[in-house]
């Protein structure tokens, strides 16, 4: 955990900066009827694709500018980079020899590394929520803590799931590059699947296969918590942790 303290601070600062920029642009858009008319003229599929609904209200603005993909993606990239490094990085830097000379099972190592990832993701998500919740009113943007928590939770769980996937692929292959590639590809695929399914009817039946759909596709900023959808994310993550432990258990390390 402490190993990544500096990089976590960097990520928090970056996310904070992004939020402040987004927030500072809101007053020029809020209640701007010109914008509302412009958006109304957009074709319906485009609005759905880019989540353009209610752009001029606080919730709509946040949904479009912050949570349509930017913020969840930033947290997910953080989680994937870190997740891929937690075990595969120890192997590539060869520190794993010294670490596993200690009386520690590989399973315990996977779980403790995952707990570090969880802590980092929670800290990053919490700083996102606090930034938007505390600074929002200064820019006349009020969405309330409830909806904000719902959407941040969805984003955080999405990021955690793919960070965990990166950790698992890293544990099973020993390669950070493979871990990052696989996790990033699947994260993007799941985002595209969920978003495209809103406009492409024949994709609708497979939409539940997308983790993005369960995290953010239900519009938690307006509709609040969805225990069912969130528990799918949590369960998937737990299964991936178990698979990571299994995959790591069977391997020859750092050969």
């Amino acid at each position: 955990m402490r190993e990544e303290r500096r990089s976590l601070i960097g990520w928090v600062a970056g996310l904070l900066g992004f939020c402040v920029i987004m927030l500072s642009m809101y007053p020029t858009i809020r209640g701007n009827s010109g914008f509302a008319k412009l958006l109304d003229a957009y074709p319906e599929p485009l609005k759905k694709l880019f989540n353009l609904a209610d752009y001029t209200t606080g919730a709509g603005y946040l949904r479009t500018e912050v949570f349509s993909f930017m913020a969840p993606l930033l947290i997910a990239i953080f989680a994937i980079i870190w997740g891929s490094d937690l075990i595969a990085g120890e192997e590539e830097r060869r520190t794993i020899d010294l670490l596993l000379a200690n009386p520690v099972t590989r399973r315990r190592m996977v779980i403790e590394k995952w707990l570090a990832l969880l802590t980092g993701t929670v800290l990053l998500s919490a700083s996102l929520e606090l930034t938007l919740g505390l600074l929002g009113p200064a820019f006349k943007l009020h969405v309330g803590w409830g909806p904000l928590t719902a959407v941040v939770l969805g984003s955080g769980l999405f990021a955690l799931a793919f960070g965990t996937l990166a950790l698992a692929v890293g544990a099973a292959t020993g390669s950070r590059a493979v871990a990052r590639g696989v996790a990033t590809m699947l994260a993007v695929a799941t985002y595209l699947l969920s978003t495209l399914a809103q406009i492409v009817t024949w994709l609708r039946p497979v939409q539940p296969a997308s983790l993005w759909y369960h995290a953010l596709g239900t519009d938690p900023l307006s509709s609040g918590f969805h225990a069912g959808h969130l528990s799918i994310l949590v369960l998937t993550t737990i299964v991936i942790v178990a698979l990571a432990a299994l995959g790591f258990e069977r391997r020859d390390l750092a050969t």
């Binding site: 190993e3 830097r93 060869r94 520190t95 020899d97 010294l98 000379a101």
Partner: peptide
């Protein structure tokens, strides 16, 4: 154990 290629944090 002291590894041959000692890598430290």
């Amino acid at each position: 154990y002291v590894p041959g290629e000692l890598a430290l944090y």
